[in-house]
Nucleic acid binder design. Structure first.
Lengths: 206, 206
DNA sequence: CCACCTCTGGACCAATCGGTCTAATGCTGT
DNA sequence: ACAGCATTAGACCGATTGGTCCAGAGGTGG
């Protein structure tokens, strides 16, 4: 388990077994869920024997799921950074994220789900899975909020905008999956909540 | 479990076996997914023997999943109708939906997912499951859009508002699940996409 | 060449999976 | 009472599940 932080810096010749497992796991879990994916199928997709799995991930399937979620989450964070960093405004950056995700959605076959949620919401009462997913998702929001701040939004606004964007992405991705149509994702940035013409009062009655 | 409006027209004494199966299936699939729920656990929760399952649902688990999704979807539609029908505006109706769903989320233990998506996105390449889910979700949107029209929005606006609301609900529910905090859902109506920040005009219903 | 280590290959396992089948148990009308 | 249907009850099945284990391949340093 030497360096975990090797995303795919390798030149495309021999993909190491550990990463083949990660990719296969992320891809399969995305489509069929954690418990919907059997080890046999997973190992076949990764072209790895069972021994390798339990060498690289001593706790087996659950370890692999956590690592695959991390791996996918880092890809998402990279996509967010790549989209917002060169953007002139938050809105422009968000639009780029939508377009990149839409293209990704098409490339994956128009039916895949969010890797992290697909992987980590399976655990029945698996508290570890849940907290892991929560940490990753909050990382997305925090990362987005940082860009929002940098691009001129005030502290509270940035956080709210990031959350709103996250919500739209998750919901929009799901609707795109339902319809097998990436245009839903492409149009999400138009639905972002524009920081209200008036003061937002969040009263909760009832 | 957790009646939304009027789930069972049956008198409260003996819940028939078929409905016990539906309730147990909806509840378990919501939390653990389709393939994450075993028949043994399901039958134990429903207090029904295996024979009853295959009597009421000849194709077994998959039949039950479809029926449970229908059952849950109808509850959702009823909640939508109950919220929008007495509402003076679309925004008010949407707010009521959010509050009712938030309460429901709390009642279910703050960790359950959307019944339909949790149930029907599991199928690997199960086209039937996918189309079934698509039909149910489009029903939610269509139902919401009908209320939007009735409450004054133009045809295209109504559809767009319904879709936007659906996206927010799905994404927001997921974030609520991640955080185990129903306030996310309660605040969703504030994030609805308002087409024009200016004064609302053109309430012409032809 | 050997010792040593990482990693692979797959045989093997108990447990559980979803599903089938049949016998028994009601409950109806006659 | 009886027949006939709907429903329940659970034993039983083959297939598959995730997981364990160890022999050996492949490389590296002595």
């Amino acid at each position: 388990m030497t360096d975990v932080t090797t995303p795919s810096a390798t030149p495309d010749g021999p993909v190491p077994t550990r990463e083949r497992l990660l990719r296969a796991a992320a891809g399969l879990f995305r489509n069929k869920g954690y418990s919907g994916t059997g080890l046999a199928e997973l190992l076949a997709a990764a072209e790895a024997p069972k021994g390798s799995l339990y060498h690289h991930f001593p706790n087996g399937k659950s370890d692999l799921a956590l690592a695959a979620a991390d791996w996918a989450s880092e890809q998402m964070l990279a996509l967010i950074d790549a989209s917002f960093t060169p953007a002139p405004t938050f809105q422009e950056g968000a639009k780029t994220v939508c377009y990149k995700l839409a293209k990704l959605f098409d490339k994956q076959g128009k039916w895949s789900g969010c890797p992290v949620s697909a992987t980590l919401f399976e655990g029945p009462e698996n508290e570890g899975f849940h907290q892991h997913a929560a940490k990753l998702f909050e990382g997305w929001i925090t990362g987005t909020a940082a860009h929002a701040r940098r691009l001129g939004l005030a502290e509270g606004e940035a956080r709210a905008a990031a959350e709103n964007f996250y919500i739209l992405l998750q919901g929009g991705w799901q609707l795109a999956r339902v319809r097998r149509d990436s245009d839903v994702i492409r149009g999400l940035h138009l639905q972002m909540h524009t920081p209200a013409p008036g003061p937002v009062q969040a009263q909760k009655n009832d």
